[in-house]
Structures are given as structure tokens and as C-alpha cells.
Design a protein around this nucleic acid. Structure first.
Lengths: 232, 232
DNA sequence: AATCTGACTGACCGATCGGTCAGTCAGGAA
DNA sequence: TTCCTGACTGACCGATCGGTCAGTCAGATT
């Protein structure tokens, strides 16, 4: 019994490992790594706690396996929905819709990743987060760069900045929904399609009235001369 | 002058509570509620574990006290920086800058709130989150509504939607910074002032080239089959 | 002086934590 | 049949968890 990297392919008809992974993903996402106990995972998976340690060498190994498994599922689906038509505005809208619905569909995985980010990741997991996040990000930046080259988009905006704002809007919708959904001003809490449509519309056209749009004020702070430097 | 002045000032026990709260806030923010042990908090605060239970009836009570204390500090500072000048675009820029630097300054509290949101809050804490978040949100919506009434802003955009995007951009900058800071496309990771300035600029003017901006197509599909031609 | 009060502590509690171990059991190979 | 392998389990381990308790001590009150 060598307790070292026991992860054999599920040759037998037993779906034990899959059930363990599913239970662990759910509990890790719901309560976090520390608060999710191996006993609770075992009970939810319908196996004994010792059985989990038979398939996974430690709680950390189980957690890593959960991350790996979830990432494989997400990236597999991600390949499906990347098809750039031609008009950048259309691609952008399609990306926003797909990205947000992908987050909402894999809400357990999304919560897992957000919990990761809030903790001090041991660099090994930081790479995982950067990989998952970076795939969406690079694709989005590519779309935006293409729009700039074709002249459809302003050349004086940072594509990375726009990408962050769009991805951030989706992530924020997901994680803060239950906070702002009861605000009287909010009417899009139950309509992610409406949300992403409005987000793209604002990003594309801005919120100023067309007549009031001026030429770019380059890198100048309009008004307040206070430096507003923040320490550390 | 005399070295005993350091250890002696514990006359009134009130200093102890402050040290406990500070240690608890730091550890709760860093590791989460469950992973932060009372022993660790006691050690960091320089008191015995039993002493914490003398001042706080339970771990949950301590956590609630930490939230209450942090909220009081944040809201106290929030009152300082609300001064609407006149131009909506200037107010928006000022708000974005102040909001982001406020998050970065109280990063422990921000992490605490984000952890809260990711868990199933017991409604009592949900109200706290809604209160803290709602104060910024309402102020921002007010600014935007005023801009619409004055005609400076488009009337066909949802002020709540814009507010969510701006707040979400700030929150996302805070929480995802260490993930996207190593992306080659990103150059604003260390410059929150640049970030908020660019965010407001994009929200105000959009990313389309001014020539390509059309009149608002109400509720219609934005999939422009035309354009994409090289113009300038 | 005697008394009281409250901040404070070391030792301790039962429960639960992650993890181990000896062993049971089914099925494939010999 | 016998043997072996690997999935699987109940019982158990030391460590740590949140929380308790008897008691010490300083300072204010009487």
C-alpha cells in the first residue's frame, strides 16, 4: 500500500471516485477548504472516510483533484463557444453572454476559484487560477485588438482594461447578486442575459449623451488636483 | 525615556479589546472564519484564549463584533469623501477614485465582506453586507440620476447597471489583482489611480470610435452587419 | 483593614479534526 | 481450489478545535 499518487482510471464500474469528487467540490465550494470536513464529504458521497484516503493521499490531494477535474470540465466547454463572426460588437456581446452563463452554470467551480483568490494561494494554485482566468482574458483581448485594427474601436483605450471590466462585471454579477438583488434600483438580478446585454452596450457606446462626447482628454485629471496616492 | 512606559499603559483594560479585535479581523480576513482559530487570535493579540471568552461570549460573537467595528470605521471615513461638485463626469471620477482607494485601504475588511458573500450568510449578516454595499451604491445611483436629469448622460441607460459596473470594476481590481497582474497585457496592476481613471473614461465615452456611434437602437439587436470598414 | 469587582490566566473538557491501520470481501489469475 | 490484488470499512490515533472553570491579582469601595 504505497500512499503515493493513487489515482487510477476508473476501470471498474464503480463510480466511487466520481461521487467523492462531486461531494468534495460541492462542500469545498459551499463551506471552503477548512470548514469542509472529510467526514462530511464521505457522508455526502456515501462512502467511508477511510475510503477517501484510499483513493486520495490527503485532504490537500483531494482538493487538488477537485480543482483539476473542475478545470477540465470548464475548459472543455469553453472550446465549444468560441466562434468569432466578424463584427467586433457582435463578438463582444456573444462573449459576454457566454462567459456569464458559463460562470452561472459552473457556480460551484466559480465559488471555488473566488475562494482561492481570497486566500494566500501557494503559487501552485495561483498558476491554476491564472490559467483558467487567462484563457477567457486572452480571447477577449484578441477580439478587442482586432476591433482596434479594423478601426471599429477607439485606439486610445487599453484592451486589457476593457477586458477586465467586462469579465469583472460578470464575476461581480455572480458573486454579489444576492446582495444587490433586493435593492429597489436593480431590476436585472434575475436576468443575466439582460445584464450582459446592457453591460456590452455601455462599454461600446458609453453613458454620455452623443452630443456631449468630447475629444479624448489624454491622461489629464480633470478637476481635483489632490494626488490621492495610496500607501502600500 | 523610561523603558517601562511600553508595558505599563495597560491600566484600563480597554486596550485589550482593541488588540483582540485587530488580531481577529486580520486572521478572519486572511484565513476565513473557520480556519482562524481562537488560539491563533489570542496569540496574535498577546492575551490568553480564555481572556477572549471573557470579553466575547463565543467565536461567533467575536466575529460579529469584528464586523460591527470594521463597518463603523469604514462608514465613518465614507462620510468624509462625499462632495458633489457639479459636473457628473467629475463626480463620477472622484467617486471611482475614492471608492477604489477605500477598498484598498481597508483590504482586510474588504476580504472579510467578500468571504461573507461567498458563504451562505444567515440573513443577519446579509443585511450588514447590503447596508455597507448599499451606501456606496445609492450615492452612485444618485449621481447618475442627476446626470440624466441634467441631460449630460444618456437617458436610456439603467443607472443601477452603470453603478454595478463601476463598483464591480473596483471590487474586481481588488480581488483579482494578483491573478491578472502577471498577464503581459496588463500594465495597470500597480496603479489604481490609472485604473479608475480609465474605467470612468470607458464608461463615459464607450469604446466605439466616435464616427461609428449610432443613435440608440432601443431593445434591438446590436449585431451590426455593416460597418467594420476602415474609417477614422 | 476587609471586601468586592472585573480583567486575566493555566489547566482542563468533550467533540471533532485529518489521518492510520488491521482486516474483510469480491473477483480475476494460477 | 488457492492465491493475490485492490476496493472498502470500523475502530482508532494524536492533535486541535471551541469553550469552561477555578482561581489569581490589582485597584476601587467600604
Amino acid at each position: 500500500m504505497t500512499p503515493e499518487t493513487i489515482s487510477s482510471p476508473a476501470r471498474t464500474g464503480s463510480d466511487t471516485i466520481a461521487r467523492i469528487l462531486a461531494a468534495a467540490e460541492a462542500l469545498f465550494a459551499e463551506h471552503g477548504f477548512d470548514a469542509a470536513s472529510m467526514s462530511a464529504i464521505a457522508e455526502r458521497a456515501g462512502v467511508s472516510k477511510a475510503n477517501i484516503f484510499h483513493h486520495f493521499s490527503s485532504k490537500n490531494a483531494l482538493y487538488r483533484a477537485v480543482l483539476r477535474h473542475a478545470i477540465r470540465e470548464v475548459t472543455r466547454q469553453l472550446k465549444h463557444m468560441s466562434s468569432h463572426s466578424g463584427a467586433v460588437s457582435a463578438d463582444l456581446a456573444q462573449f459576454a453572454r457566454g462567459h456569464l452563463s458559463s460562470i452561472l452554470e459552473h457556480d460551484q467551480f466559480a465559488r471555488l476559484m473566488l475562494r482561492e483568490i481570497l486566500s494566500d494561494m501557494p503559487q501552485e494554485r495561483l498558476k491554476i487560477a491564472q490559467q483558467v482566468f487567462g484563457e477567457n482574458f486572452s480571447e477577449l483581448v484578441t477580439i478587442l485588438r482586432r476591433g482596434q485594427e479594423s478601426g471599429e474601436l477607439r485606439a486610445d483605450v487599453d484592451p486589457a482594461m476593457v477586458a477586465i471590466m467586462l469579465v469583472g462585471a460578470d464575476v461581480f454579477f455572480f458573486q454579489a447578486n444576492k446582495v444587490f438583488r433586493h435593492f429597489p434600483e436593480v431590476n436585472f438580478a434575475d436576468d443575466p442575459a439582460l445584464y450582459s446585454h446592457q453591460a456590452v452596450d455601455i462599454l461600446l457606446r458609453g453613458i454620455l449623451t452623443p452630443a456631449a462626447v468630447k475629444t479624448p482628454t489624454r491622461a489629464g485629471n480633470s478637476g481635483t488636483p489632490s494626488s490621492a496616492q495610496h500607501k502600500e
